[in-house]
C-alpha cells in the first residue's frame, strides 16, 4: 500500500463528493415530486359508458375502450390506489398505506373526498362493485411466508353497503356450508368477491385445507354455500349466467368461464398462468392482468374460449362500467 495522501485534502474531497451526492438525491426527489404533481387533477367519471377504468403506476385512470396503445392520453384520472373497480357510478379504491400491511378501502361517488373510508389490515388484492353501485367488496392479503411456511398467506374479504352503512368486515363471520353441511374448519380463507344484480347474492372463493370452493353467498342470511371445487377469483358476467375465474392446475392458473346452469366449463385462449380476478368488459370480453417487463399489462380475450388474447393497455385492475342487461 502506498502512503496515505495528505489527510486534509482527502477529507475535503470526500466531504465535497458526499455533498454532491446528497444534493443530487434531494434534487431527484423534488423532480419526481413535481412530475407526479403535473400528472393532473381528478377527471374520472365512474359512470361514463364505453370506457375502461384501471390502475397504472399507483393511480386510477380511465380511457375509452379501444384507445389501446394511446392509453397514455387517458380520458380521466382518479385517486391514488393499487386496486380499483367501478360499476353503477361507484368507484372503489384499495390503497396500501406506508407501513406494513395496512390499507384503506375508499369509496367514491364523485371527485374529491371519498364518501367512505375503511381501514383494513393487509395489502390490496381484489376490488369489486355491485352492478347497482350500492355494494363494494375488497380482498386484502397478509403474507406469512417469512414465518409460517414459504408462500403462505392469509386473506380477508369484506363487503360494505353504501345504502345503510352495513359493514361486513370479513366473510369469516358468515356461515359456510359444504355438501349441505355446516363447514367448521378453522383455517378458512376467503377472496375474490363478485356481486349479482340483486344486491344480495354474491360469489367468492373459500379455501381450507389446501382445497378451494366457489361459494354462493347470501348477504341477508349471512350464509355461504359451496357450489363447486377449484374455482378462484370468480367474476360474474353482466348477464348473471356465467362465471369467469382462474382454475388451478399444479402451481399454475388458467382462466376459465363456467356456465352456472349446466356447469359447462370452457378454458380461455390465454395459456399463460394468470393470477388475477378477471373482469367482464361486456358479455363477450374478459379482461385480466399479466406481468410484463415494463410492469403489469391488461389483456383481453373472448369469453367463449375462441380467438387470441390481445393487449389492451399498460396497467392493472381493469374494470368497465358495464351497462345493465
Amino acid at each position: 500500500m502506498t502512503a496515505w495522501p495528505a489527510g486534509r485534502a482527502r477529507t475535503a474531497t470526500g466531504i465535497a463528493l458526499i455533498c454532491v451526492l446528497l444534493a443530487a438525491t434531494t434534487g431527484y426527489v423534488l423532480w419526481r415530486a413535481r412530475a407526479a404533481d403535473s400528472d393532473g387533477a381528478w377527471s374520472l367519471r365512474p359512470d361514463r359508458p364505453g370506457t375502461v377504468v384501471y390502475v397504472d403506476r399507483g393511480r386510477v385512470r380511465q380511457v375509452p375502450r379501444g384507445a389501446g396503445e394511446r392509453a397514455g392520453r387517458s380520458a380521466g384520472k382518479g385517486p391514488d390506489c393499487q386496486r380499483a373497480a367501478v360499476a353503477g357510478g361507484t368507484l372503489v379504491c384499495l390503497r396500501g398505506l406506508p407501513g406494513p400491511m395496512s390499507s384503506d378501502v375508499r369509496v367514491y361517488r364523485g371527485p374529491g373526498k371519498p364518501q367512505v373510508t375503511l381501514p383494513v389490515w393487509g395489502e390490496p388484492s381484489r376490488a369489486r362493485v355491485s352492478p347497482s353501485g350500492h355494494l363494494v367488496a375488497w380482498t386484502v392479503f397478509r403474507s406469512g411466508d417469512s414465518y409460517v411456511a414459504q408462500g403462505q398467506f392469509s386473506t380477508t374479504a369484506g363487503i360494505y353497503d353504501l345504502r345503510d352503512g352495513d359493514h361486513y368486515g370479513s366473510l369469516e363471520d358468515f356461515r359456510p356450508y359444504v355438501g349441505g353441511k355446516p363447514y367448521r374448519a378453522e383455517d378458512v380463507n376467503y377472496w375474490g368477491i363478485t356481486f349479482a344484480a340483486d344486491d344480495r347474492t354474491f360469489y367468492a372463493t373459500m379455501a381450507s385445507k389446501g382445497r378451494t370452493w366457489l361459494m354462493r353467498g347470501d348477504l341477508t342470511r349471512r350464509t355461504l354455500t359451496a357450489l363447486r371445487e377449484n374455482v378462484e377469483c370468480p367474476s360474474l358476467s353482466p348477464d348473471g349466467h356465467r362465471i369467469a375465474y382462474k382454475k388451478r392446475t399444479g402451481d399454475r392458473w388458467r382462466l376459465h368461464v363456467l356456465t352456472l346452469r349446466g356447469g359447462r366449463d370452457v378454458p380461455l385462449a390465454e395459456t399463460a398462468s394468470i393470477d388475477d380476478q378477471p373482469a367482464w368488459l361486456d358479455d363477450d370480453t374478459i379482461a385480466y392482468t399479466r406481468p410484463g417487463d415494463s410492469g403489469p399489462t391488461v389483456f383481453t380475450t373472448p369469453a367463449d374460449g375462441t380467438g387470441t388474447p390481445s393487449k389492451l393497455l399498460n396497467g392493472a385492475s381493469a374494470t368497465a362500467p358495464v351497462p345493465r342487461p
Partner: peptide, 29 residues
C-alpha cells in the same frame, strides 16, 4: 412513498444514492 405514491423506482434510485454515500465514506474516511 408518502411523497411519491407508488414511485418504486424513486425508492430504488434514492437507495442507490444513499449506498453510494456509504461507499464514499468508506473510501475517503
Amino acid at each position: 412513498l408518502l411523497l411519491l405514491p407508488s414511485d418504486y423506482d424513486a425508492v430504488f434510485v434514492v437507495s442507490f444514492l444513499i449506498a453510494a454515500v456509504g461507499v464514499l465514506v468508506l473510501v475517503f474516511f
